[in-house]
Amino acid sequence: MPTYVIEPHWANWMLSLEMFVAGLAAGIFFFIALANTTGRKEDREVGAILGFFPAPLMLIAAILLTVDLGEPTRFLNLIFTNPAAAERPGPFFLNPSSPMNYGTYVILVFGALTVIPFLDALRHTGRLPFGHGIVERLAHDPVGMFICAVFALATGSYSGVLLNVTNQPVWSDTYIQGGLYVVFSALGGFAAAGIAADRMRARETAGAVRTGLMGITLLAGVLVAVFVANLVALGVAQPLIGTTTAFVAPAFWIGAVGLAILYPLVVTTTGIRLQLARVNVSSLAVVGTLALLGVFAFRWSILHSALAAVAH
């Protein structure tokens, strides 16, 4: 075994889940920002209900990360310079060459911003006792939502850039992990919006979700093709194209490519209606659910691809 490859604990399931829920929160917020500023009344209603999700999802991500790292107080060292690290100047810690540092600040701001759609969701459902006016203004201000969308997309891309800036097989073999992660994050957001639109019978919004899913899955397909081609050209694609270990290749191809990209792409492009037993499996609720599974499979398989490379 090469000595310069990660130990298995680096890529445990908890890390996959952390990345998935944080990415989903970012993707949903991206959809909300679009719906609230450029959408119609029906879109904003779907957006308002989706507003219940980003904040709790970020909370779940934080809890998982805390459990993973063991001590919550340690997180403070990511933000404030620990007195023991006297080599670094200033009260706030920033290592300019560490993507994790930038990511910490981005996620911190994004986590705080998720409160806005959450409060808007409460307002929309009549559960907010005060501040209706300011919450509504914040949640629908185009400039504010643009800033929120930027932080959401930065959060979505964070894990990908993080994996890219390592010395691990697959993770660092291409430059496009950041792009892949942000696209899959948006894909998750639109998939969740599709489920919500379907359940709420919001037909106009469902139409927007279909167009969005079509464009995003096309973009994801192009990036995945470039990603795999790049790995093949470098001769390091075995973890993803072979069946070496731990279901990495099946999860990638069936989950990430099949469920998250191809199935939504085919359904949204052709408008095909598929019945399985009595279930309309081409409905946005089904397509969205399968796409979410695929997004999780994407994160899981990429995270574990480094381990599969070792086994290979």
């Binding site: 959408g39 927007a208 279909r210 995003i216």
Partner: peptide
């Protein structure tokens, strides 16, 4: 893509 999605909606047949 997101902006386009809300401009050109693909309605179910």
């Amino acid at each position: 893509t997101g902006l386009a999605a809300f401009r050109r909606r693909r309605m179910e047949p």
